[in-house]
Nucleic acid binder design. Sequence first.
DNA 1: GTCGCAAGTAAGTAGGTACTTGCATCGGCC
DNA 2: GGCCGATGCAAGTACCTACTTACTTGCGAC
Lengths: 217, 217
Amino acid sequence: MDIRDRILDAAKRVYAQHGFRGATTRLIAIEAGVNEVTLFRTFGSKAALFEAFMQAHVSHSPIPHLPDPPADPEREMTAWVATVIGHLRENRALIRTSFGEIEERPEAAVSMCEGPNCAGMILTDYVLRLQSLGIASADGDIPTAVAMLMSSMIGDAISRDVMPNAFPQPESDAPRKYVCVFLRALGVVPVRGRSGGAQPAETASGGHGRHRRATKR
Amino acid sequence: MDIRDRILDAAKRVYAQHGFRGATTRLIAIEAGVNEVTLFRTFGSKAALFEAFMQAHVSHSPIPHLPDPPADPEREMTAWVATVIGHLRENRALIRTSFGEIEERPEAAVSMCEGPNCAGMILTDYVLRLQSLGIASADGDIPTAVAMLMSSMIGDAISRDVMPNAFPQPESDAPRKYVCVFLRALGVVPVRGRSGGAQPAETASGGHGRHRRATKR
DNA sequence: GTCGCAAGTAAGTAGGTACTTGCATCGGCC
DNA sequence: GGCCGATGCAAGTACCTACTTACTTGCGAC
């Protein structure tokens, strides 16, 4: 790993923990294991360093896809939601810090929003496919439901460690639960009988729910 | 307004905009229109000032109630959600900043969470009442739906100004839309016909939806 | 009037921060 | 070997920050 990337990486960690003002060039240099002067020689200034590291960060944030012919909405979406929440949670300190400094440095937060914006589009497209296939009912408020699911994922990822009991327990079941509520709001109802209850863990004994009209097309 | 309160108020504004590190005693003193020395004489230190202002802030944050015999869920909840989002939006800068500094100063964010926690309980109680009255279906996942609505309100309040098109438009319709999706997820369906479509504005021409079995008890 | 107290004013201290400068060191390349 | 570019190191500059000290001013109570 070359010295430039080491500094960028260290800057990311230090910034996520201490914010822009708290991320002193001295701390970053120590964290990167380089001399502070090298930092200035490489990037010119602290501001330029942060510009570079923000750009580097957004350039490679992978957003998972949802299958184009939807087959099993609950299963596919649960996996997708779990992945997205996972990504968000990995970067939660960075997201929180950037958002906390919107007033002073809006660019950071704006670039942080690219990922979620893109994820929201992927999700919307998927649900529109569900709707056009007749799996989701025609009169559901898709934009609002998508916005709510996105907010839920972000909220879970960045707030669960602060107020754990405000979110579904256990953490590992949260994605499935979010998806069940989401699908129900859009009129995608699981077949009744086994695993239909989305509520407590004691009824969801293992099996995955199948959905009505969830054909392979 | 006495001088102590003026300083507390100024500290709140300056902190919301610049964070703890950026909220210099000099800035706060200027914003409060007092001498910097007065600030130290009144509170002793910057840290003590912030402790005092956090305590003062959480002590008077009003959370609206939901009617105990629920009558019209959509209307009542829409008003409640609008009020809560309003409160959150008023304090959005403060919330964002406190959350952004969780890593360094967790107490601030924790005290910020009291309001939402309480609101979540009020909401849960209300929905349980809906359920016990048979207005909401018995198998809905109430904790998850409540968590999602809470996340949606918070997300809307603190992120709409950054990514406006990720949230329901227009802003004034957002509370009703959230409530409609929420109620639908919990099996509270409006009567079909007029105002049933929760989706686009062109069909929602004025009327408020009534709900099946929404009797006055 | 004058006493006491709350507040302002001016100046200073000790430490931190971004950033610079000058020089030593090291490793690869001709 | 000798050159050169990248890096480390030590020191310094100019500024900011929390906080202190010593003194002055204004104002109500007696």
